[in-house]
Nucleic acid binder design. Structure first.
Lengths: 247, 247
DNA sequence: GTCTTTCGTTATGATACTTCACGTTTGTGT
DNA sequence: ACACAAACGTGAAGTATCATAACGAAAGAC
């Protein structure tokens, strides 16, 4: 029973190891090609780069889209890990600092690898309908889990987390509990809502910047703009009272 | 001289008219195909739909990307027009109302035609570098012009427009005037900045929703969430003081 | 030491973009 | 009205890529 029925934790045989390594190499090569040649990923290119021929790749991925899916899963995983790391600040009481770190981390994730960000949040690819479980689950799910974790920490520490605007609609109020049930979190509907505002705002900025819709603003000014937006979001989320900004 | 050197405003000859009509039909058909068959736009499909063959389209567009560019230009134009219309509210003194209308309009633009929104703000297409004048200029430019118009109206009317957070970085402060010079607007740097926060937040929500990253939230709850975000942005932009939301 | 599975290659088919050469239609000038 | 020129559309052809199929080679299992 220890080794047959459940295959989750068997000793990785040699074949499995080399296959896994090949898969990793394929993904790494594919990501590199994406970075270099834009979103038109050619199977032949990947294969040639690896010293193989194109049909060989079909032993590992049934489809071009399947490879892209795998890359997306990896990307979302890394994004959520990076977010979680940013939120897991040395000083857990510094809610504002953690929020700031998360925002910066999200933006940096996009800037460090625009191709990957485009892969995750742009139009996936021809023949890759924007609907389906590929895009959504890992994305919002992982990010939300990390953010929820942060907020729950704050609540546990009895820090005041009172969102600036507590306009909670009835349908959201009803859904908030349901949505959270999966993650095991229990957060006031208004606070949870403000986290999504945070996510939307940061994501929006990252998208605009990544997809080159802010190129009319110099990089330095963009940085300032983003900093200011973070400050606004810190206030909006309730990590700092509005008066703290003198006027 | 009347008909040779400058061709901008000649009487549209018959040929030109029928050609323009054909171009319009091509674009309309292409958009329909985009809506129906996702982002994999086939030239042959468009042609067959129009009772032609594929090579004929090359008389009108040198390239598949050129057609997509044209569709993008149209889309951005329509988006900016829609935004401007929303901001041009019956009651010009109702700044909060105009902001709300703009936000709703932006989201509705996305929801009314997800394919078009994806075309504009997703990765355009393979071989369509995310840099270049295609994406940026019309997009941010047009949206910003409309929003600036709104803010300038408000300022002219001596309405208080004091953004909630006035954390203005030096580089943004320096650039704000430069950027605005083109549009002929003259708006305080912090107010202008808050407009971009508004744009980023609304755009972020629209993107998340359009690209299916919020499908774990029911449509009704999403509406509530968006409403709440609008209220937050109204406060952030300074169209309403924070206290107005009781707590 | 054979036997099976996995892996990679060459060859092949299918599809779509794009160009080319040619005939046809349409508008123009005389 | 008639010849001419430009624009337009079609079928054939070239190229590139995805994807499959059939075959041979290598590696591990018993």
């Amino acid at each position: 029973m220890r080794s047959s029925a459940i295959e989750s934790e068997r000793a990785p045989s040699r074949r499995e190891r080399v296959r896994a390594a090949t898969i990793e190499e394929i993904k790494a090569t594919a990501m590199r090609m994406l970075r270099e040649h834009g979103s038109d990923l050619r199977f032949a290119d990947i294969a040639r780069e690896m010293g193989m021929t194109a049909p060989a790749l079909y032993r590992y991925y049934a489809d071009r889209n399947e490879l892209l899916s795998a890359l997306m899963v990896d990307g979302f995983t890394e994004l959520s890990a990076q977010l979680a790391a940013a939120l897991d600040a040395p000083d857990l009481d510094d809610f504002a600092g953690r929020i700031r770190a998360a925002a910066v981390s999200y933006r940096e994730f996009a800037r460090a690898d625009p191709a990957r960000f485009s892969l995750l949040f742009g139009l996936p690819n021809p023949g890759f309908g924007s609907h389906g479980e590929h895009t959504s689950g890992p994305a919002a799910g992982a990010a939300m889990v990390a953010l929820e974790q942060c907020l729950r920490d704050v609540i546990d520490r009895r820090q005041i987390v009172r969102p600036l605007v507590r306009h909670v609609g009835p349908r959201w109020a009803a859904e908030s509990g349901i949505v959270q049930a999966g993650a095991g979190a229990r957060i006031p509907a208004d606070a949870y809502q403000s986290l999504l505002h945070f996510l939307a705002a940061v994501h929006g900025f990252a998208c605009l910047e990544n997809f080159d819709h802010l190129n009319w603003i110099s990089p330095g000014a963009r940085d300032d703009l983003f900093d200011a937006q973070i400050e606004l979001l810190i206030v909006a989320v309730g990590a700092r009272p509005p008066q703290s900004d003198p006027g």
